[in-house]
Amino acid sequence: MRFHMQNSLIGTSVIRRLNLKAIFPLLGLVFVVLFFGFGTKGLVFSKLSLQSMLNEAVYIFIGAIGYAFVLAQGNFDLSVGSVMGVACMTAAMATKINPYLALPVGIITGSIIGLINAFVIVKAGVMAFITTLAMSFMCTGLILIISNGAVVGAPLFMLKWYTVPLKLGVILTFGIAGFFAFERSYYGKISKAIGSSIEAVRQSGTNIVLFRILPFIILGTIAGLLGFISLIRTGTASSSTGSTLMLNVLNAALLGGIPFSGGTTSKFRSVIIGTLTITIMSTGMTILGTSTVNQQLIKGLVFLVTIALSFDRKNLKVIK
């Protein structure tokens, strides 16, 4: 974190604001740890709870990594959960032919949907919000079509694939790969730059179209992977698979400190902090017995407040 000690032209109030922006993710994490730690009388850190958190964290962490690239560019994607659901369903159906097809089928499903998203948003220029919203709607319908409304099961032995080493391995791999991709690669640098000023990147001679398409495809692929993971975790695929994913992943990235408008100030550690915060919050709320309704209410409030805090208003003259 870099603080500017010098008398900047903009004045100390901005410096104070920069501090808040930089610190609130950590504050949030501390708050959540304390609140739920005491609120659940320590239950939230029990062995059972930690195991549950690990399961949640796998989804949220990996999803948030993919999401971070989309957010960094100043875009977002409402279809992540539904894509995961569809991928889970296609993977489940694929096991009927051959259990080992589940992983590739799931991933490919996700990639294809991500590709469609990418083209509609980047090439046809339709707003990301409504494109991914429509896509999520269509995916929900697709799940029903494929499954005929039933719950589809996978061969039981696949459940054994979902081990702790696997979870940790996946988290570690994606964590390291994600870090290097986000902070030390051409792709990461350009993505963030696009969020800061797409015109500047365009006028620096970079192939904007390519870089704008990639995050959606990658996010779709990751959603596909998560669909597969869900399958080997629960052994089933239904229309409710992935329903909470989108909100949790988005909130994780935002709570971790990635500004909604993206840009070069986005940092990978936000994904880590945010995942921790959301996982503890989610599990804590479940232990406390918070109803689904209230959980949604709280997540909605968190969403709005986080964005309001981290939104970059400097570049906008007017119009929201």
Binding site: S185, Y186, K189, I190, K192, A193, S196, S197, E199, A200, V201, Q203, S204, G205, T206, G263, T264, T265, D312, K314, N315
Partner: peptide, 23 residues
């Protein structure tokens, strides 16, 4: 609005066209 990313720092701006060189 067009040649610079004003909300980014100097490093990011100077390196923007030269990542292929620096990497």
């Amino acid at each position: 609005t067009e040649s610079l990313m004003t909300s980014a720092n100097i490093v990011d701006n100077i390196c923007l066209a030269s990542y292929k060189k620096i990497q």
